[in-house]
Write a protein that binds this DNA or RNA. Structure first.
Lengths: 333, 333
DNA sequence: GGAAGATGAAAAATCGTTTAATCACCGTAA
DNA sequence: TTACGGTGATTAAACGATTTTTCATCTTCC
């Protein structure tokens, strides 16, 4: 059994109020008793218990994290960053999976409230408007989502991806997405299209319509594939390699999110990474402001970072740059 | 503001005890008032608040999940399964990352206790002995870890992997691990070695010693690579393909854990999947037993499941089976 | 010397819920 | 009529902390 405040007080012959005052630094305590008490506290390793404190103060020090799909490979990085940022400010993270279902999402939020979460960080499932929640909330989704508070600048990311390839001489692109209904993917693709120079052309393929024949695309003059996720980039890359094409010799491939495998494949996958620590820190900060009901900042757009590895290179017949080809592991911002 | 028990009681002109009794079904309440109260409860959407209940009952309905590294790509599946299983039994999940550091791990456990967790599920970091925790705990690691409660049968998984390839005519293997100090990987490799038939031979390579030259290995007669993780299998596979080898034509590759990308690459990666729902359910069940201080079952070994995709096939010059080659998406247990 | 102020610490209220103890009432049996 | 058992509901205590209020003591100043 953990030591309780009352026990400490009794052993020392002081009141619980005094011990609590020492703990919080508030109230009036003589230097003498302060030393005495803090010594005892350290000795028995006392920590104030959550429920009692939560009941009295109305603050549990726990935040909810509601995700549409925990098994999404992007999640580990996000969850880790948020857990780290939260712990840094002394808060815990309660997770919930809405299984991409608006009803389950609402239910998850209710459970968070019931469990005493001080606020929630929510990556809303598609088509849900997160509003009028009965507790402070931060929405992480995409810039085009109403109510969004923090997210990567997906559009700028898409722009960077296309510009990177254009600088390498590529002019004919395939933009590869999974679902039209994903606002993140739409933003990324919009960014790519916005960066198209005169004389460049891009065709958009959606995996929800079926997997395109990459080998055929390559034969028809496409020299670069920009996928909205490393997962799709990997699909393209392995299919191209399987069909005998060289990456990046014949076709360059670039992805998004810098997933766990991206650095470990051959060729290393060039990708646009999300700055998860930054996003997490911003989310926690935003939530903290709400908890102190301070004035809220505008939605925060965190830039994406181009990570150049070996899956992108000069377009065929394009004069190669001075530095021959990027080495695996190079990181450019 | 959420409605409180006291408010409901006052509005109905009854005592809080009565409302609480209706909620729990205990105590003595007339059918009449029972209806009245439950109607009101439903009307205002009342749910008992966590902290108050936790304080009184000593149970928070929250479990801690402590992991050595959230960013591990295996984590999403585990976390999702545990969250689902916990929610099914009305419990929430508080996550923490020990960053593979024993000190941080102990600290994380302390925080869980402080936040009122009823018990914890812990995937211990290497070299730590989880024992004498001041609260119910379930350890998920490997069969050879002392104190382990639930885990996949990694050894049997390794055995299955090697047998699968042996049945396809392979005789010369490379067993590919990351770190000798990982008990999970050691168990898997031990299982592989235990299944070697007479005339078969296997060489073990550890990535911590550097990435081996897979192309050279293939040239020297290796026809199958068994990696202890899909991540390493992917490394091998892309390097082989990049060097012009055909998978599985020249070399078969098999991995572990059925990570998110494994089904989406070409060729689809044959792998041994962990039965996460089963593991999660067993962990939660084990914890529930501890909470009712019932007698505890022996450590539970959950079988791994062979998922046959396209990265494994008959050894070169081996008579092909009747069904030509496994199709992507096929699942065999 | 007595009032006012400062100081240190204790007493008590409070948060929301559960639960053991108590109570009022009614019908029934002695 | 009295005692008793059963029923339905209330009262009050308890959980572990924080915080406001109160109280006692000691200075200091007129």
């Amino acid at each position: 059994m953990q030591p309780k405040l009352k026990e400490i007080a009794k052993e020392l012959g002081v009141s619980t109020a005094t011990v609590s005052n020492v703990l919080s630094g508030k109230g009036r305590v003589s230097e003498e008793t302060r030393k005495l008490v803090s010594e005892k506290i350290r000795e028995v390793g006392y920590r104030p218990g959550g429920p009692g404190r939560a009941l009295r103060t109305g603050r549990s020090g726990v935040l909810g994290l509601v995700l549409p799909d925990i098994s999404n490979p992007l999640f580990p990085a996000l969850a880790q960053a948020i857990e780290t940022a939260a712990e840094r400010s002394g808060q815990g993270i309660l997770i919930a999976d809405s299984h991409a279902d608006p009803g389950a999402q609402a239910e998850a939020v209710q459970r968070m409230i019931q469990r005493g979460a001080d606020g929630i960080i929510i990556v809303p499932c598609r088509g849900t408007q997160v509003s009028d929640l009965p507790l402070p909330a931060v929405v992480i989704d995409s810039a085009s989502t109403p109510g969004n508070c923090v997210c990567s600048d997906h559009q700028q990311g898409g722009k960077q991806a296309l510009e990177h390839l254009q600088a390498l001489g590529h002019r004919t692109f395939v933009l590869l997405g999974q679902s039209r209904r994903s606002s993140v993917q739409s933003d990324r693709i919009a960014g790519m299209q916005s960066a198209l120079a005169a004389g460049s052309q891009a065709e958009t393929c959606w995996l929800e319509d079926g997997i395109p024949d990459f080998a055929d695309l390559a034969r028809r003059g496409v020299t670069a594939i920009i996928a909205t996720s490393d997962l799709h980039a990997l699909t393209a890359l392995t299919r191209l390699q399987g069909a005998g094409f060289s990456v990046p010799g014949d076709v360059s491939v670039i992805g998004f999110d810098d997933l766990s495998f991206s650095a470990r494949i051959t060729p290393g996958l060039t990708t646009l990474a999300q700055n998860m620590p930054e996003i997490a820190a911003a989310a926690i900060a935003h939530l903290s402001l709400q908890l102190e009901n301070a004035s809220l900042p505008a939605a925060r757009l965190v830039p994406m970072e181009l990570v150049v590895r070996s899956s992108t290179g000069p377009a065929p017949d394009f004069p190669s740059p001075k530095k021959p080809s990027p080495q695996q592991g190079d990181v450019t911002t």
